[in-house]
């Protein structure tokens, strides 16, 4: 029953997020602050992970191709497909559920514990709109982060391929350009927008409705990471089935 209650409350929170908007002059500052906190501050970690995981995908692919009849360019092709279709949108989103998700839950949860949310409500402010909506708008820039991950993942694969001696630069580039289907990019960005929505709202839900003290803020962050990851993985499956099969 508590699962159903939570799901119902989550959707009510989303409805409330669009009701009684905060004054634009205030909201504008909140959006810029959240873009800085959630997107700009994540570029470093996303770039680092994307570059090296791209490299690892290339090495693993190259090491598993032992048949001399398979062209070397397949390494570039496999890396591109893995990075664009799954690694950048899904794997990075799960990592962001940990980084951005815990930040959102703990910051809103701390505001709940220290009565700052009560203070907003007492002033007659729609606290959900004030706190969650700017995060939702900021994360609409999430595809920018995923584009960086896609680019650096393929670049990391290229570096590993060439410097590891698995294939020549020409072979790798030929593989990256081979049989390119533009819809795969559309599919990846549709997923990215859906995951951005989940990343903004599920951690906010766990922060906003948490009860207790500092210890519970930590527990809420963990729970929010678990459920954001579960939602991302489940919706990844559903969207893949709907869009690609």
């Amino acid at each position: 029953m508590s699962y159903l209650h939570n799901i119902g409350q989550y959707f009510l929170m989303i409805k409330e997020m669009f009701r009684k908007p905060t004054k634009w002059s205030v909201m504008r500052h909140l959006i810029f602050k959240d873009i800085d906190d959630l997107i700009i501050n994540s570029i470093g970690i996303v770039a680092f992970i994307a570059f090296f995981v791209g490299g690892v995908v290339t090495i693993q692919t190259a090491l598993n191709i032992s048949n001399p009849l398979i062209p070397k360019s397949l390494v570039g092709f496999a890396t591109r497909q893995s990075v664009i279709l799954e690694f950048a949108p899904t794997f990075i989103s799960v990592i962001m559920a940990g980084k951005v998700g815990s930040f959102i839950t703990s910051s809103i949860g701390t505001m709940r514990v220290t009565e700052q949310i009560d203070a907003l409500e007492v002033m007659g402010i729609n606290a959900i709109n004030y706190l969650v909506f700017p995060k939702f708008i900021a994360l609409m820039l999430y595809p920018f982060l995923i584009s960086i991950a896609m680019f650096l993942g393929i670049l990391g694969g290229m570096a590993a391929c060439v410097f590891g001696g698995f294939a020549s630069l020409d072979d790798y580039i030929a593989g990256v350009q081979m049989d390119f289907i533009p819809f795969h990019i559309v599919y990846a960005f549709i997923k990215t927008f859906v995951f951005a929505f989940l990343l903004a709202t599920i951690p906010s839900y766990y922060g906003y409705y948490m009860k207790g003290g500092a210890l519970e803020v930590g527990k809420a962050s963990t729970t929010s990471f678990v459920w954001t990851s579960v939602a991302i993985i489940l919706l990844n499956y559903i969207l893949t089935q709907m869009l690609l099969s």
Partner: peptide, 10 residues
């Protein structure tokens, strides 16, 4: 409202 813990925005 003056809250017990002040509730100032950090």
């Amino acid at each position: 409202m003056v809250f017990q813990g002040s509730a100032l925005f950090d």
